[in-house]
Computed example of a mutant assay.
Amino acid sequence: MPALTAYVRGVGVIGPGISDWFALQAVFAGHAALASAPTAIPPLAVLPAAERRRVGNVIKLALATGLQTVAAAAADASSLATVFASSGGDGANCHAICETLASDDRLISPTRFHNSVNNAASGYWGIATGAQAPSSIICAYDGSFAAGLLEALVQAISEQRPVLLIAHDAPYPEPLRAVRPIADAFGVGLLLTAQASAAGQAQITLALTDETVNSLANAPLEALRQGIPAARSLPLLACLARLQRHAETGRVVLDYLDDVRLAVSVKAAP
């Protein structure tokens, strides 16, 4: 695969003890410790009341992360193509459907059914923002963030348009949690463009590699990286934070496939 280059125009992140990109940057810089607190997902006033009642935490997390990213980039959400990446979609909704199917009353509500598909977050994003641009959904187990990043860059470059990547994961309830433990909810958003602009924060270049994946020296952040698939993005976010703080270039290797990883080089946008 030839190297692919694009530009990061905005970043958003929500996770355990992390309210936004600024809070995470403070942790990376050593100005604050990672708070020992569960993920707090902001309320979604952008959805009509009926839709707000129907959606679960996975969709709320995806939309809140996307809106935070769009706000950071001062972009128009309704005009953006999107890529949603999740390692397993809405596990809580899947659990509820399985409980119903195992009961005497096996009738599944229409809301449960349409929320069970992996593109539910994309559909609710369209309702919330009015977006009618193309939207893709990626699922690649623990490599879902890297797969989504690769897909988003390919689209941004080939279509010559901004693409919003939203990677998100949330815990499964028991008994699914026992076989697929996810520590907490985590969402990360990147708005990517094919061309540099005054608003661009960084230039990133992707290439495939068989090198070892980067870990984090900060133990609580490394536990997040290992414990939540979407948090496999943290080494890249740390690299972006160093660039923003010290104009320091960098390169990280992220989880992707069993025998192929994703190398990401970061430098200042021209």
Rank of each mutant, 00 (worst) to 15 (best):
3 A>G: 08
4 L>M: 13
6 A>M: 06
15 G>W: 05
16 P>I: 06
19 S>A: 15
26 A>L: 09
26 A>Y: 03
29 A>S: 13
31 H>A: 13
32 A>L: 15
33 A>Q: 15
39 T>S: 03
42 P>A: 11
43 P>Y: 01
45 A>S: 10
48 P>K: 13
50 A>I: 11
52 R>L: 12
53 R>N: 08
58 V>T: 11
58 V>F: 15
59 I>N: 04
60 K>N: 09
61 L>T: 02
64 A>K: 04
67 L>Y: 02
68 Q>H: 10
71 A>W: 06
72 A>C: 11
77 A>L: 01
79 S>F: 05
84 F>M: 09
85 A>H: 01
86 S>D: 02
87 S>P: 08
88 G>Y: 13
96 A>N: 08
99 E>P: 03
99 E>S: 12
103 S>Q: 04
106 R>M: 14
107 L>S: 13
110 P>K: 05
111 T>Q: 11
113 F>I: 08
114 H>A: 06
118 N>I: 12
121 A>H: 10
123 G>N: 08
123 G>T: 07
124 Y>N: 06
128 A>S: 13
129 T>F: 03
130 G>Y: 04
136 S>Y: 09
143 G>D: 01
143 G>I: 03
147 A>M: 12
150 L>V: 05
152 A>D: 00
159 E>K: 07
160 Q>I: 06
165 L>M: 04
172 Y>Q: 05
180 R>G: 03
180 R>W: 09
182 I>D: 03
184 D>I: 09
189 G>H: 02
193 T>G: 06
198 A>G: 15
203 Q>Y: 03
203 Q>T: 01
213 V>R: 10
214 N>D: 15
218 N>S: 14
219 A>I: 14
220 P>S: 09
222 E>F: 07
225 R>P: 05
226 Q>V: 12
227 G>S: 04
227 G>F: 01
233 S>E: 12
234 L>R: 00
244 Q>M: 07
251 R>S: 14
253 V>E: 00
256 Y>N: 04
257 L>N: 05
263 A>L: 11
263 A>Q: 15
264 V>D: 06
266 V>E: 08
268 A>P: 04
